[in-house]
Design a protein around this nucleic acid. Structure first.
Length: 274
DNA sequence: TTTATAACCTGAACGC
DNA sequence: TGCGTTCAGGTTATAA
């Protein structure tokens, strides 16, 4: 389920249960996810208090005084807070036991997710070192029109694949890439370098607002992280084009087109997006 | 350096 | 009912 809004919604749902909690154990049922889960996690974490839970791109970072537990949900992962002793089900690969009567459980049918350990500056980890700016950070050196305009120069790849490149900007997944390009009125097939400054301005703006709105929608279901039903706000959202092939565009009624770009589906309106 | 493709893995939906 | 095919929200590794 996770695009960036879902990961951020997960973080906000988990944070109250992890803050001021101390780890009392680690259970690894399936050691092989995207990469092997470190074998010595129990020794590393047992008795350690959680310092903070933050997010970088789609990585959740559970910080301890001596290192960071890196969590990634892949394509199908979810994290939930459950009462201690809750029986695991299929695909429940990893538990973090806490001293407050709860456990944090990772379920991931496709096993594209990750549980990793890193000591030292987290930004030097190979998976995080080359990430581009956060789209939602409000700082001047982050993701803004000037940055996007410069980054697109001499890049001939299609703009949709370009904005999904984590080295350019993090957190834009397949759904929100299509949605943001619709919002900006930009055809997903055009080469990145052909965007005008005004188009970059619009696109950067729409990426931010699209993700923000999705986080707000996801936030309404935070309680789902406490019980076992888990039903992120994601499914409740109305998409402009994603998943609507052949249906009428919500603006001009012309049928939404579905194509393949880099082996991923893209959806767009050929009239609204030039 | 940039771009394109294959790979990791399981399950749901669909057509025959 | 059963089998084969296709598709799915991510990301890295490898090849061209």
């Amino acid at each position: 389920m996770p695009e960036l809004p879902e990961v951020e919604t997960t973080r906000r749902g988990l944070a109250p249960y992890l803050a001021e909690a101390t780890v009392t154990g680690v259970i690894t049922r399936t050691p092989r996810l995207r990469w092997p889960i470190p074998e010595n996690l129990n020794e590393l974490l047992n008795g350690q208090p959680v310092v903070s839970l933050t997010r970088r791109a789609k990585y959740l970072l559970l910080e301890f005084s001596h290192g960071t537990l890196i969590l990634h949900l892949g394509m199908s992962g979810s994290l939930r807070i459950l009462p201690a002793g809750t029986a695991p089900q299929t695909h429940d690969h990893f538990d973090l036991l806490l001293d407050n009567g709860c456990l944090m459980r990772l379920r991931d049918p496709r096993r594209f997710g990750a549980v990793l350990w890193h000591e030292g500056n987290i930004n030097t980890h190979p998976l995080l070192a080359k990430l581009g700016p956060e789209p939602l950070n409000d700082d001047h050196c982050g993701f803004h029109a000037h940055y996007l305009y410069q980054a697109t120069r001499n890049r001939r790849v299609a703009i949709k694949q370009f904005i999904m490149d984590n080295a350019i900007v993090v957190g834009v997944g397949n759904i929100y890439a299509s949605e943001a390009l619709f919002g900006a009125g930009i055809n997903p097939l055009i080469k990145a370098e052909t965007l005008s400054f005004a188009q970059c301005e619009k696109l950067a703006d729409v990426i931010r607002s699209t993700l923000n709105e999705a986080i707000l929608a996801g936030g309404s279901t935070l309680r789902d992280f406490v019980n076992a039903s888990g039903n992120p706000g994601y499914f409740q959202q109305q998409h402009w084009v994603y998943g609507r092939a052949g249906e009428p565009c919500r603006v001009c009624s012309s049928p939404v087109v579905q194509i393949k770009q880099g082996q991923r589906s893209s959806f767009y309106c050929s009239l609204c997006q030039k």
